[in-house]
Design a protein around this nucleic acid. Structure first.
Length: 454
RNA sequence: GGCGCGUUCGUCUAUCGGCUAGGACACGGCCCUCUCAAGGCUGAAAGACGGGUUCGAUUCCCGUACGCGCUACCA
């Protein structure tokens, strides 16, 4: 039998990191086993659902690279979808729920009370076989001892989560339910419902929760909890995927830096552990660095351009090769893409628009520094090849002549060229900038206060 | 309160009864160095607690503590 799994988020206006991890585990499981990954939108709570909220989820999943084999094509519940088990929006599945409810009534498993429909729940403990947690024997709680029945349909006619979730999993032929551990206790209800329909429940796999660094439950407001923020900050999506994969799962060989295809081939449920994991943005950042430095150059440049644009930096006036070369000098820095504009923005500004903060000027562009820059400028104005190696050799030669350490030239030059004391390798950055821009930027500082020298 | 799940370095984890408890991130030191990084070398750092079972428990069982989840006409 072919594996069918699903991710069934409810559109709350954001995609929670825990939800993303649940989606990822489902997706990895499906891809590893050649199964089918279904996306179903649980938009039964019409009060807080909107296409915008659904769109956030679809975008988040697409950004992570979690493509679905069946599910919505657009955020519109009445729009196109892929797959023959739809609709994939619960708000459009009313007739399926009504039909299944009638079936329950016919079997004497459902009845009305106070305008709502109740399920006739077993009075016995329910054993939940779980692929990750093991066999869980769920005894009745004190309230359930008194009355184990629960609501299937509210008095306003809305079916509750337990009903729609089970009916959809049943109708959609879901074979494995991989979801957060917060659903473990509820699974007793789900199993009882499947049995009431006369079918065996799917296999269950409850994965441990993701907690805040302090061990508390992660909510929307917590740092790192919302996928949209990763997109805005400019993390490499494969780094986020890699990081999430390591929360609750680990590969047999201990290798942690894994690309998506490696994850697909290694992932399976038998190595998912049972204890909750705390979110650690430092480790995510480290993985982001490792993935970006290994990223295909073209893709790095493409992403870089996009985030420069997001930051309002227009690079359209520069040719492709220049933009690519410029961005690539920042690749080894492990920056978030959103920080690229601040780090490498100087490449794309006119010479006279390079801003030098007063602290930077005070620190690196004093009188002596400007004198030194004059010497460097004369050297660079000569026949030197404008490539990093030659620029370095020439700078060191000048430093030797002046009897100063190379740092007495590099930092002033860096400040003049970039406006900052932090940046890419000076020699490489000057190579990219080219002779004209470098001389132009140096001259601004040499000229000031020593106009007569030239 | 009831029911359930969990508990190895600060964090993520490995270990499926033999452990001098391994790796990664973070942290400290040294080296390298044009800034910031990176890199190299190196260091410190863990089995919640108490009982069992066993020749031997981190590993199995029980209890306690702590954490988390569920306990809705929320999903």
């Amino acid at each position: 039998m072919s594996i069918r799994v699903r991710f069934a988020p409810s559109p709350t206006g954001y995609l929670h990191i825990g939800g993303a991890r649940t989606a990822l585990f489902n997706w990895l499981f499906a891809r590893h086993h050649g199964g089918t990954f279904v996306l179903r939108i649980e938009d039964t709570d019409s009060a807080r659902n909107s296409q915008a909220a659904i769109d956030v989820i679809l975008r988040g999943l697409r950004w992570l690279g979690l493509d679905w084999d069946e599910g919505p094509g657009t955020p519109d519940p009445d729009g196109p979808s892929v797959g023959d088990r739809g609709p994939y929006f619960q708000s459009r599945r009313g007739e399926w729920y009504r039909r299944r409810l009638a079936e329950l009534r016919d079997r004497g498993m459902a009845y009305d009370r106070d305008g709502a429909v109740y399920f006739r729940m077993t009075h016995e403990a329910v054993t939940i076989p779980d692929l990750i947690v093991g066999e869980v024997r769920r005894e009745l709680t004190d309230r359930e001892q008194a009355d184990p029945d629960w609501v299937l349909v509210r008095s306003d006619g809305q079916p509750v989560f337990h009903l729609v979730n089970v009916v959809d999993d049943l109708e959609m032929g879901i074979t494995h339910v991989i979801r957060g551990e917060d659903h473990l206790s509820n699974t007793a209800k789900h199993i009882a419902l499947f049995r009431a329909f006369g079918v065996e429940p799917p296999r269950y796999a409850h994965i441990p929760l993701i907690l805040n660094p302090d061990g508390s439950k992660m909510s929307k407001r917590d740092k790192g909890a919302v996928v949209t923020n990763y997109i805005e900050d400019g993390y490499a999506p494969e780094a986020v995927v890699n990081y999430l994969s390591l929360l609750g799962w680990s590969p047999a060989d201990g290798k942690e830096l894994l690309g998506v295809s490696e994850l697909v081939s290694r992932f399976d449920l038998d190595r998912v552990n049972r204890s909750p994991a705390r979110f650690d943005d430092k480790k995510l950042a480290a993985l982001h660095f490792e993935h970006t430095r290994r990223m295909d150059e073209g893709r790095f440049v493409g992403m870089g351009r996009e985030y420069l644009g997001r930051a309002g930096l227009d690079v359209s006036g520069h040719d492709e090769g220049y933009v690519a070369a410029a961005l690539l000098t920042a690749r080894e820095k492990g920056l978030l893409f959103k920080d690229l504009a601040g780090f490498a923005g100087f490449y794309f500004k006119p010479d006279e628009a390079v801003q030098v903060a007063v602290e930077v000027e005070a620190k690196a562009l004093g009188e002596e520094a400007r004198r030194n820059l004059g010497a460097l400028m004369r050297a660079y104005g000569g026949g030197v090849d404008f490539v990093a190696g030659s620029l370095e050799a020439e700078l060191k030669r000048v430093a030797g002549e002046l009897g100063v350490k190379s740092g007495a030239l590099t930092q002033p030059a860096r400040a003049a060229c970039t406006g900052s004391l932090v940046g890419p390798s000076l020699y490489h950055l000057m190579e990219v900038l080219g002779r004209e821009r470098v001389l132009g930027r140096l001259s601004r500082w040499v000229a000031q206060g020593q106009g007569g020298e030239q």
